[in-house]
Design a protein around this nucleic acid. Sequence first.
DNA 1: TATTGACTTAAAGCACACTTTAAGCTGTAT
DNA 2: ATACAGCTTAAAGTGTGCTTTAAGTCAATA
Lengths: 150, 150
Amino acid sequence: MVYTVGEMAKIIGVAPSTLRYYDKEGLLPFVERSGSGIRIFGEQDLNTLSIIHCLKQSGLSIKEIKSFIDMVQQGDETIDERLELFEKRRIILEKQIKEMQNTLKVLDYKCWYYQTAKKEGSTEAVDKMPLSKMPKDIAETKKNFKNFFN
Amino acid sequence: MVYTVGEMAKIIGVAPSTLRYYDKEGLLPFVERSGSGIRIFGEQDLNTLSIIHCLKQSGLSIKEIKSFIDMVQQGDETIDERLELFEKRRIILEKQIKEMQNTLKVLDYKCWYYQTAKKEGSTEAVDKMPLSKMPKDIAETKKNFKNFFN
DNA sequence: TATTGACTTAAAGCACACTTTAAGCTGTAT
DNA sequence: ATACAGCTTAAAGTGTGCTTTAAGTCAATA
């Protein structure tokens, strides 16, 4: 099964212009062309594109992804460099996940706050509520993030 | 304890120009001014700034944060709207965290891949390795993401 | 064969989140 | 009093990641 740029774009849920842009930036050296110059994506390109997605997801810029692809094409002499790249990324991503989990706790608090404000009819009522009357984990979050807008 | 823009910027780890930009965009209506027009940040502004950080972290744009701050200033009539905002964000953030955890697994795989390639001296050796010789969770990831660059 | 919709490119445009610049003011230290 | 670091503003500039435009080509259908 082969696909044109528009078909592939639809499959992976991006705009065709995005794939053309990636190609222009050197991210798709594996994409073949028909005699008349039309891009031809194969089945296995789906996997490759999902790795590109993954690298983007993990915080790499287009340029960094390009340099990774260049390294792959240079072969085994770049193994150390690639290892270093991924180890650094892993650490960064782990930190980001932890930060987002913290953020999620704050959002949980906010949701509870406004649900309660809705029931009570005002934010003031919630502001006056003693910690002892709040759910345990909500009270925990509030202790860390107090005094902000609402 | 009060701080100037430069001091506060240093404390929270951003450039002073960033705080001025936020102020210009209406994100800091709480910041006071000295008689001569110099911004004066108070101790409690630290909390407020950390919530702004949190909202950014959770994916809100500057404009969305601004509109939230406007809602807060409008008072209790916007409780429902604010609740809806946070509930939507919560769902989006949860999905993002899950996606990042998946990405982390792929990075774990990548790290293992290049550590092994380094030991073996080539990526080829790793590519030829049967799933049965890989750590269990690595093999699991490989099954989902196969055939990509390396 | 003509039309139509999707393909091609280079180049310009856009949105976002800052950052930098320029010109001027403030406040402390010597 | 003067120097100087840090504050102020409006406005212009930057980098990233696309998207849009314009002008043209390709390929399948009526």
